[in-house]
Amino acid sequence: MSETSGFLERPDGQRIAWRRVEGAGPTVVWLGGFKSDMAGTKAQALAGWALAAGRAYVRFDYFGHGESSGAFVDGTITRWREDALAVLDELVRGDVVLVGSSMGGWIAGLVAMAWPERVRAMVLIAPAPDFTEKLMAPEIPPEGLAALKADGVWLRPSEYGDPYPISRTLLEDGARWSILEAQPIPIDCPVRVLQGGEDPDVPWRHALEYAHGMKSADVVFTLIKDGDHRLSRPQDIARLLAALQEVCA
């Protein structure tokens, strides 16, 4: 058994890069975070698990991320949600288990709300629903607000590398997909959440609000007290695989 790869052609001519492992279902679908890609530690670990266990698995890069085409600055929650739905529509048959990291936890929720009949369960790592409005916008400094007003783009400093562009369009579009205000959030499948207590990007209370607000009664929230945002240490990967095996059983 091996992992195959290719590109999904979108109607606007853009190409979404993907990798797939054929195997038993439900298909596990990786939904990465903001400015991350499908070659990261957790996505790779899931590929190794799928190959060893004979499980179906798909990972992909959103528009403007990793191996996919497009400029990151032109990306929006609308576009990245559409990418995820297109992957499910064209590359996956039957039920899915969504594994969403950071922004991917928001995208996973939007997908589950759009296709509740296909999403069997979700495993979320440091999920960041509504992050554009709830987490990012309140922390934009005055010079960032001035740049957004004048140019429509602000270069946001990052602990993980070079500054990256945040567009006014991204912030405005994100508000369209806010889900934390829904009571309850219309997600009714089993959900497992892994959240670091030392996460500097997604406060644990933000992730807990998401988990607590879901309609589903089968939601387990695990606080890893010394965990960071990435949760990519060996012990974190072990917890991720255990949660995935539980909901896939």
Rank of each mutant, 00 (worst) to 15 (best):
R176N: 13
W177T: 09
S178W: 03
S178I: 08
I179L: 15
I179P: 00
L180T: 07
L180Q: 04
L180V: 01
E181F: 13
A182K: 12
A182P: 07
Q183I: 06
P184A: 07
P184H: 01
P184R: 01
I185L: 01
I185R: 00
I185A: 00
P186R: 05
P186I: 04
I187Y: 00
D188M: 03
D188R: 04
C189Q: 00
P190Q: 03
P190N: 06
P190S: 02
V191R: 00
V191G: 03
R192A: 01
R192V: 01
R192P: 05
R192M: 08
V193D: 04
V193T: 10
V193P: 06
L194R: 04
L194C: 09
L194K: 03
L194D: 05
Q195W: 04
Q195I: 02
Q195S: 10
G196W: 07
G196Q: 05
G197I: 02
E198K: 14
E198P: 09
E198F: 08
E198Q: 15
D199I: 12
D199G: 14
D199C: 13
P200D: 09
P200W: 01
P200S: 04
D201V: 09
V202T: 08
V202D: 06
V202L: 10
V202F: 04
P203T: 02
P203N: 12
P203L: 03
W204A: 13
R205S: 15
R205W: 09
H206L: 11
A207F: 03
L208H: 15
Y210V: 03
Y210L: 14
Y210C: 05
A211I: 01
A211L: 06
H212Q: 12
H212T: 11
G213F: 00
K215G: 10
K215I: 00
K215R: 14
K215H: 03
S216N: 08
S216Y: 01
A217G: 12
A217Q: 13
D218C: 03
D218G: 02
V219L: 06
V220H: 09
V220E: 14
V220P: 08
F221Y: 15
F221N: 09
F221E: 03
F221A: 15
F221H: 13
T222N: 09
T222Q: 14
L223W: 05
L223T: 11
L223A: 09
L223G: 14
I224Q: 10
I224M: 14
I224A: 12
I224D: 11
K225Y: 07
K225P: 13
D226H: 10
D226K: 11
D226V: 08
D226E: 11
G227N: 06
G227C: 10
D228N: 11
D228V: 09
H229R: 07
H229L: 11
H229T: 12
R230L: 15
R230F: 10
L231A: 11
L231Q: 00
S232L: 10
R233N: 15
